[in-house]
Amino acid sequence: MFEKLQLTNMANAMAERAGARMGVVAQNIANADTPGYKTMDTPSFADTYQDGGTPMRMTRPEHMMGQDQTSASILRGAKGSGAPNGNTVSLEQEMVKTVTIRQDHDMALAIYRNTSEIIRASLGRAR
C-alpha cells in the first residue's frame, strides 16, 4: 500500500540519496591526505529525483531555467584552491555536509512517519 503513494516514494528517494551522499563524504574524508585527490559530491536531490522519479512541474516557462541538469551520480570537482599537493578536500566543509545530510535523512524519516500516521488515522487504527 505504501509503495503506491508518491509521497512515500519521494521520502524513500530522499533517504537513499542521504545514504549515498554520506558514503561520498566519507570517501572524501578518507582521502583528505591523498595527493591530487579532488572532492566529490552528489547532484542535488531535485536533479536526481527529476531524473528517476516524477518530473517536477513548471508553472511558467522560465520557472526552471538555469538549473544544471546533470545526470551523473557523483560530481567530481572542487570549489576553492586546496592544498599545495593538489588535494581539494576541506574537512570543515565535509563536516558541514554531514550535518546537512543528517537533516535530509531526518526529514525523509519524518515525512514517512507522518504519512503512515495519517493513513492509520484515516483507517481508524491508532498506534
Rank of each mutant, 00 (worst) to 15 (best):
N31E: 06
A121M: 02
A83L: 14
V89N: 07
D106R: 03
V89D: 03
R102A: 07
L5Q: 12
Q103E: 12
A121H: 00
Y112S: 07
D41R: 10
R21A: 12
G77L: 01
G82K: 00
T48S: 15
H105N: 04
I29M: 05
T59V: 13
N9V: 12
Q6Y: 06
A18F: 15
Q27S: 14
R60N: 06
H105P: 06
L91W: 08
A30Q: 05
A15I: 15
S81T: 02
M107C: 04
M64E: 05
T34Y: 11
N87T: 04
G36P: 13
T42V: 15
T34G: 08
A126S: 09
G36E: 14
M56V: 15
M65L: 13
E92K: 07
Y49C: 09
I101C: 11
T70P: 06
V96P: 05
T39F: 00
V99S: 10
V99D: 01
P35M: 14
R17D: 04
P43R: 11
G80C: 00
G86S: 08
S73N: 14
A26Y: 14
A32L: 11
G77M: 02
L75I: 15
K38W: 02
T39E: 01
Q103T: 11
A20N: 04
R57D: 02
A83H: 09
D68M: 09
Q50F: 14
T115P: 05
Q69S: 10
Y37I: 06
L7D: 10
G23T: 10
D41Y: 03
A13Q: 09
M58C: 01
E117C: 00
E117A: 09
A15C: 09
D47W: 07
K97Y: 06
Y37M: 06
H63P: 01
S116L: 13
D68P: 04
S116K: 15
P35W: 11
P84I: 11
K97I: 03
E94F: 01
M64Q: 14
A26F: 08
N85A: 03
I101A: 02
T59Y: 10
G80E: 01
M14W: 08
E3A: 04
L91M: 13
V89T: 05
N114Q: 07
D51N: 15
T34F: 08
R21D: 05
D68N: 14
